[in-house]
Write a protein that binds this DNA or RNA. Structure first.
Lengths: 126, 126
DNA sequence: CAGGATCCGCACAGATACTG
DNA sequence: CAGTATCTGTGCGGATCCTG
């Protein structure tokens, strides 16, 4: 509601419901979310905490924990805790999390197609 | 190069070249870029500085200027200055800028499809 | 009209140390 | 092993005032 109004009224083909897109982008606006999702996607199965940290590469424990908590909160990953000693926690993508792969692929395509042109533009820029 | 290696080696279907996508997302990771692009897209033609500010809605002069400068630098919008008094500046999308509409549409679709489910997940979250 | 300059607050993110 | 706690810094963004 409220937002939905602006979503659906994507007046013409060019306009694209920017508010909704912006809201969607807000989900992975931070530095690590996409990298975590990517690592889980590549693994194609659950990953444990430290395996995930290694797969992402360069992420601190704090940031990994925060990022995962956020993803779990939004229903993009599941966290399953095994009551064992030492403890074990598995993270995996939910169907929603997996479904993000499609739009990301579109973005990847766009990036590949326009990356060079943008690089040139940057160089040409005064 | 360097990046490209990691781009192309999108090992399987699921993995999606996350580093490249993350780099692409960095272009509009900030609060206003997508909204500016959306305003220009809706206008379907050049917009003057203050018209753009009104179209975006809620953006400060500082942020508008910074955002536009960045977009110009990356070759997504053009800035044409008319040497008149009072001055007049037109902003318009470049082909690259327009081409971003396609992946954004994919993202919009995804958002529309999963928005509710995520909302439910958030409510269910302890 | 279209900005530039400046000051400030705050959320995001990094590093380190500690714990059930 | 899988976190939590704390401190700290920095870049984004807002508000206000000034100018060619």
């Amino acid at each position: 509601m409220g937002v939905t109004n602006k979503l659906v009224r994507t007046d013409d083909g060019a306009s694209v419901g920017c508010l909704a897109v912006n809201e969607a982008v807000a989900l992975f606006r931070d530095k690590w979310t996409l990298l975590c999702l990517g690592a889980l996607s590549k693994a194609d199965g659950p990953l444990r905490y430290h395996a995930l940290q290694a797969a992402v590469g360069g992420i601190s424990q704090r940031m990994l924990t925060l990022t995962l908590k956020n993803l779990e909160r939004n229903g993009l990953v599941t966290r399953t805790l095994f009551a064992s000693v030492p403890p074990r926690v598995d993270y995996a993508l939910t169907p929603i999390g997996r479904s993000l792969g499609a739009p990301m692929k579109a973005l990847l395509h766009w990036s590949l197609e326009n990356h060079e042109a943008m690089e040139r533009a940057r160089r040409a820029y005064v």
